[in-house]
Design a protein around this nucleic acid. Structure first.
Length: 733
DNA sequence: GACCTGCTGCGGGGTG
C-alpha cells in the first residue's frame, strides 16, 4: 500500500480491507494523487476491469465523505444500464461510509428522486438527458444542489467524443457552471475511458476553454496478452439446385457452434440482421444436437427484458452463454468473463474492435479474438470488390493497426453539429425564459463547445428558428420561445439530441419482443426470425404501430435499416500497404507474426495476384469490361467527394467498399476529368451538398434551413481539401 | 454493407 492509501479516511480503508484487497491496482495508485488534489481535470485511461471506477471514486468519496451542503460528486454515464451497475457497486461502500448514492434516470423510482431532492447530499449518478431535463425544469434546485460540487465524472468518455451527444454534454456542463456560479471556480471534470485515440483532442474536448489544466493518467504496463486468429470462408456461387456445398454462413455457424458450445463468448456480427440470423441458426444447431440452447441475440431493437435476462445470465457465469451481438455489448456493462470474442465479417473501425477485444481476457487470462470472414467464390464475372477480397483485406488492415500501431480513429473536429446547437438554443431559452442573442453566441460558441460556428452562421440559425416559430424576439430585443419551440421544449422527447426513427412494436402473446423500423414490409402469414426465435406474423396494425407474432418454424430475420459506417483514410491506406507488400503479418518484438489460417491466407494470395496483375501499385484507375474503377485508397469522405464530382460531371458513378465504379468510360477520360476539376477549382463541400436531395440526418436538421443544412451536410460527408491533394498527388505530378 | 444511446407528469387501474 502506498502513501496515497494512507491518506484515505479510516472508513474507506476499512471497506478496502473487508473486500480482501491486498493492494490497490496500478491505475488506482496512479490516479489517486491527481483526483485527491482536486485542482485539475483528470483523464483516466485504462483497460476494462482494471479498476478505473474505484480509481476515481475512492479518492473522490474520500474528499466529499462528510459534505452536507449539496452533492459532492456528479457522475454522468451514457447508459442507464451502466448507472444501475455502478449503483450496485457503490452502494455497499457508500452504506459503510454513511454517504447517500442516488441513481437518477428515466427508469429510476420517483420516490428515490424525491428523497435525493430533499437531502441534496452524496453522489448523483445521471444521464445527460436527465441532467438536461433538470436544468430546464428544476434549475433553482440545481443551483442549490450542485453549487458545492467537488467532482464531475464522465464514464465511457470515448462514447461522447465528437458526436451530437458529446456536444450536448459539454454544453450542459457549461450551463451547470453558470447556474451554480462556478465559472471562475469550476468543479474538476474526470473522464474515464478504456480507448482513447487522440489524447490531445480528448483533453481539449473535456474543457474547450481550458480554464483549468488536465492531468492524464494511463496505466503503464499493459501486459495483457492478445491472441488473434483470422479465418477465411469461401461462399460458393451456386449454379444449380444440385449444388449441395454449404454456404459460408452455414460453415461459419458450424464453427461457431463447435468452439462456443460449453463456454461463454461474444459474437459481434456487425448488423442486427446478421446477429439474429446467427442466433437463430445456432439455436437450431442446439436443438438438432438435443442440447439446451446457449445462444442468444443482443442488440438495440430487442426489448429491455430480453437484453437484461441475457446480461444477467452472462454475469452469473453459472451456465455457458454465448451472445450474438452488435455494439450494445461494446460498452462497460458488467457481463462476467468470456472465453473468446468473435468478429464475423469485417470490423469498420479500429476503436470499436479495440473495445470488443477488451471484453475478453482478464489479468490472468489472455484476450482471444477470432475474426471470421466470408469471401465469394470467384467466377467469370466476379465483382472487383470480391476479386480483391476487400472485406478480408480491411479486416487484416484493422487488426494490424490495432496491434502494431496502437492507433485509433480521431474524432471528426470539422463537423458543425448545428442540430445540437439548435437544441441547445431552445434548451437555454427554456431554462432562463429569455436571453439576448449575443449572450447565447458567447455561451454556446465563443466560450462554449460550438467553436466551429461563425457569428454569421449563428445569426442565420436564429433567423431560421424565427421563421419556423421556434423562437421570437421580444420588444426588449431578447429572444424567447415561439409557439412551436414551446411545444418542443415541453415535450418529454425533447431532452435527447439524437434522432430516433419511428418504429413498430413487435409483440408475442402480449409481451414485447422488441421493435422494427416503420418501413419494414411485413405481412400477416410471413415467417420471421427475431429475438433468436422463429415466428409467424399474425397481425400488423399501422394504427397502434404493433406487429403481433406467434411461435413458428422457419423464417429469416427482417431488415432493420441504418446507414453505413464510414471508414477512415488510415485504414484504406493500410489496406493498400498490405496489398502492395503482399504481407499482412504483424511486427512484434522484431518478429513477424502470422495470424491468418489456411483459407484466409489463400484468399489473401488471390487478392495480391490480382493487385499485381493489374499493377495497382501504379494504376489508380483500372478497367473491367465496359466500366472503370477508381481506387483512391482513402476514407469515405474522399470517396464521397470524388463520386459526387463524377456524378455532377454527368457520369454514372457509385461507390462500394471504398471503390468507385464508373460505367462506360476509359481510365484516361476519368483522370483527365479529375485534373480538369482541380484546374477549374473544385466546388466547395457546401456546393456538393446542394445537389444531394435528402440531407436531413440529425434530429433538428429540418429546422436549420437549406443553406446551413448544406454547410452541415457538406462538412459531414465531403472533404474537398483532402480530395484535391489526392488528385494532385495521383494525376498531376 | 447498414451501430447505439435517452426522456415527464399525470391519469387510470390494480394491489396491499
Amino acid at each position: 500500500m502506498n502513501n496515497e492509501y494512507e491518506k484515505l479516511d479510516i472508513r474507506i480503508k476499512k471497506w478496502i480491507y473487508q473486500q480482501g484487497w491486498l493492494d490497490l491496482r496500478e491505475i488506482q495508485k496512479l490516479a489517486m494523487p491527481s483526483v485527491m488534489d482536486g485542482k485539475s481535470d483528470v483523464l483516466i485511461s485504462s483497460s476494462t476491469a482494471s479498476g478505473k471506477t474505484e480509481a476515481f471514486f475512492l479518492p473522490a468519496i474520500n474528499n466529499t465523505i462528510d459534505q452536507n451542503d449539496g452533492f459532492g460528486i456528479l457522475y454522468i454515464s451514457p447508459l442507464k444500464a451502466l448507472i444501475n451497475d455502478q449503483y450496485r457497486r457503490l452502494e455497499p461502500l457508500c452504506h459503510d461510509v454513511n454517504m447517500q448514492v442516488t441513481a437518477w434516470h428515466g427508469d429510476s423510482l420517483v420516490s428515490k428522486k424525491e428523497q435525493a431532492k430533499k437531502t441534496n447530499t452524496g453522489i448523483l449518478l445521471i444521464t445527460p438527458e436527465s441532467l438536461e431535463s433538470l436544468l430546464i425544469r428544476r434549475s433553482e434546485w440545481v443551483k442549490r444542489a450542485f453549487s458545492n460540487l467537488k467532482y464531475i465524472a464522465i464514464d465511457e468518455y470515448h462514447s461522447f467524443i465528437g458526436n451530437e451527444r458529446g456536444y450536448q454534454l459539454l454544453s450542459l456542463l457549461n450551463r451547470l457552471d453558470h447556474v451554480t456560479n462556478r465559472i471562475n471556480n469550476p468543479a474538476p471534470r474526470v473522464a474515464l475511458s478504456a480507448t482513447l485515440g487522440d489524447i490531445e483532442m480528448a483533453t481539449f474536448l473535456l474543457r474547450p476553454n481550458k480554464k483549468i489544466p488536465c492531468t492524464i493518467v494511463r496505466n503503464t504496463n499493459n501486459s495483457s496478452i492478445l491472441k488473434i486468429q483470422t479465418k477465411g470462408y469461401v461462399d460458393p456461387v451456386k449454379s444449380s439446385m444440385h449444388d449441395v456445398r454449404a454456404s459460408a454462413e452455414d460453415q461459419i455457424c458450424q464453427d461457431l457452434y463447435k468452439i462456443c458450445k460449453g463456454t461463454s463468448n461474444l459474437i459481434f456480427a456487425n448488423s442486427r440482421q446478421k446477429t439474429e440470423l446467427f442466433a437463430a441458426q445456432l439455436r437450431d444447431l442446439c436443438e438438432l444436437n438435443n442440447s439446451h440452447n446457449e445462444f442468444f441475440p443482443h442488440h438495440g431493437s430487442l426489448s429491455k427484458i430480453h437484453r437484461e435476462e441475457l446480461e444477467a445470465r452472462l454475469q452469473k457465469e453459472t451456465l455457458p452463454t454465448t451472445a450474438t451481438c452488435t455494439m450494445t455489448l461494446e460498452l462497460g456493462i458488467d457481463i462476467g468473463k468470456v472465453a473468446s470474442v468473435f468478429q464475423v465479417s469485417a470490423p469498420t473501425s479500429v476503436s470499436s474492435l479495440r473495445q470488443r477485444v477488451g471484453r475478453s481476457g482478464r489479468r490472468d487470462s489472455p484476450s482471444i479474438l477470432r475474426v471470421y470472414i466470408s469471401e465469394k467464390e470467384l467466377v467469370e464475372n466476379s465483382n472487383i470488390v470480391d476479386l480483391l477480397r476487400l472485406e478480408l483485406i480491411q479486416s487484416l488492415a484493422i487488426i494490424r493497426l490495432l496491434v502494431e500501431n496502437k492507433w485509433f480513429e480521431p474524432s471528426d473536429e470539422k463537423q458543425l453539429h448545428l442540430s445540437t446547437l439548435l437544441h441547445q438554443v431552445l434548451a437555454i431559452i427554456g431554462q432562463y425564459g429569455s436571453i439576448r442573442a449575443e449572450q447565447l453566441y458567447f455561451f454556446l460558441c465563443k466560450d462554449g463547445p460550438f467553436q466551429n460556428i461563425s457569428s454569421s452562421q449563428f445569426r442565420l440559425l436564429l433567423q431560421n428558428m424565427g421563421k419556423e416559430e421556434l423562437i421570437t424576439q421580444l420588444d426588449s430585443g431578447e429572444l424567447t420561445l415561439g409557439v412551436k419551440g414551446e411545444k418542443f421544449v415541453e415535450h418529454y422527447t425533447f431532452y435527447a439530441v439524437f434522432n430516433t426513427p419511428e418504429e413498430y412494436r413487435v409483440v408475442a402473446e402480449g409481451k414485447p419482443l422488441g421493435t422494427l423500423p416503420l418501413d419494414s414490409v411485413l405481412m400477416p402469414g410471413q415467417n420471421i426470425a427475431f429475438c433468436g426465435k422463429r415466428w409467424v406474423v399474425t397481425d400488423v396494425s399501422p394504427a397502434s404501430k404493433t406487429i403481433m407474432v406467434k411461435r413458428s418454424k422457419g423464417g429469416n430475420p427482417p431488415k432493420f435499416g441504418g446507414s453505413p459506417m464510414p471508414v477512415h483514410s488510415r485504414i484504406r491506406q493500410e489496406m493498400f500497404n498490405i496489398l502492395s507488400n503482399g504481407d499482412y503479418r504483424v511486427l512484434m518484438g522484431g518478429k513477424k507474426i502470422d495470424f491468418a489460417e489456411k483459407t484466409a491466407s489463400e484468399l489473401f494470395t488471390e487478392a495480391v495476384v490480382f493487385f499485381n496483375e493489374h499493377n495497382m501499385l501504379e494504376n489508380t484507375i483500372i478497367t473491367q469490361g465496359k466500366n472503370s474503377y477508381v481506387f483512391p485508397w482513402m476514407g469515405d469522405k474522399v470517396v464521397n467527394t470524388l463520386t459526387a464530382l463524377l456524378i455532377q460531371g454527368g457520369y454514372s458513378a457509385g461507390s462500394y467498399y471504398g471503390v468507385i465504379e464508373i460505367q462506360d468510360t476509359e481510365p484516361q477520360e476519368i483522370s483527365q476529368f479529375f485534373i480538369n476539376c482541380v484546374t477549374k477549382k473544385l466546388p466547395t463541400e457546401h456546393d456538393l451538398a446542394k445537389a444531394v436531395p435528402e440531407k436531413q440526418i440529425e434530429k433538428f436538421d429540418a429546422f436549420i434551413g437549406e443553406d446551413l443544412l448544406c454547410d452541415e451536410y457538406g462538412k459531414k460527408k465531403f472533404d474537398c481539401i483532402e480530395t484535391e491533394e489526392w488528385i494532385k498527388k495521383n494525376f498531376m505530378q
